[in-house]
Amino acid sequence: MNRPDFEDLEIYKLAENLANVIWNIVKKWDNFAKDTVGKQIVRSADSICANIAEGRGRYNDRENRHFIKIARGSLYETISWLRLAYVRKLLQDEDVTNFKPILDKLLPKLNAYLKSIGNRN
């Protein structure tokens, strides 16, 4: 079996990087923080990757767009959880420095990818 082509997508690489950065941050938290905010933020970040991959695997533009929209929703959810974690003092400035550049690239690239799927002939 060949390697799946979603792994070549820059948006997938960014999403995977974001998910792994978040994972490494959350695993340092205390049990209460992990069990509440931590599980939610890890799931939402992982969902971005999973939906990009699933959409790509559909080989159908309509379904791919659907899953990319879900990935975008998961990205927004992740941003919301990150904001809550920051306000609740679960994130250090160094943590923000690690994930913010990824977020700044991922959302516009995800939107551009979504638009490009709709414009293919």
Rank of each mutant, 00 (worst) to 15 (best):
N2H: 15
R3T: 06
R3Y: 06
R3C: 13
F6D: 05
E7M: 08
E7L: 09
E7G: 05
D8K: 08
D8R: 09
L9A: 05
L9D: 00
E10L: 10
Y12L: 07
Y12K: 06
Y12G: 06
A15I: 02
A15L: 02
A15T: 01
A15V: 02
E16S: 10
E16H: 08
E16T: 11
E16W: 14
E16P: 11
N17W: 04
L18C: 00
L18M: 00
A19E: 15
A19I: 07
A19T: 12
N20E: 02
V21S: 00
V21A: 05
W23Y: 11
W23S: 03
N24G: 13
N24H: 14
I25R: 02
I25S: 01
I25N: 02
I25M: 01
V26W: 05
K27Y: 06
K28D: 06
W29M: 12
D30F: 03
D30H: 10
N31V: 09
F32I: 15
F32G: 04
F32H: 15
A33Y: 13
K34H: 02
V37N: 00
V37A: 00
K39V: 10
K39A: 11
I41T: 14
I41C: 09
V42H: 12
R43G: 15
S47K: 13
S47W: 14
C49S: 13
C49D: 13
C49N: 13
C49Q: 13
C49G: 10
A50T: 13
N51C: 00
N51F: 03
I52E: 09
E54W: 02
G55K: 03
R56C: 13
R58T: 02
R58P: 01
Y59K: 08
N60Y: 11
N60G: 08
D61E: 13
R62N: 08
R62T: 08
R65I: 06
H66W: 15
I68P: 00
I68K: 02
I68E: 01
K69E: 14
A71G: 03
A71P: 04
A71N: 06
R72Y: 15
R72N: 07
R72W: 12
R72G: 12
G73L: 10
S74E: 12
Y76N: 06
E77P: 06
T78W: 07
T78H: 11
I79Y: 14
S80G: 11
W81R: 01
L82W: 05
L82C: 03
R83L: 15
L84F: 13
L84P: 08
A85W: 04
Y86C: 10
Y86Q: 08
Y86T: 08
V87E: 12
V87D: 09
V87R: 11
R88Y: 05
R88E: 12
L90D: 03
L90C: 03
L91W: 01
D93N: 12
E94A: 14
D95M: 00
D95L: 01
D95Q: 02
D95V: 00
T97P: 05
T97N: 12
T97V: 10
N98L: 05
P101N: 04
P101R: 08
P101W: 07
D104K: 13
D104P: 06
D104A: 14
K105Y: 10
L106K: 12
L106P: 12
L106S: 10
L107C: 00
P108F: 01
L110D: 01
L110I: 05
L110Q: 04
N111Y: 01
Y113K: 02
Y113R: 04
I117V: 06
G118N: 15
G118A: 11
N119V: 15
N119S: 15
R120K: 11
R120Q: 09
R120I: 14
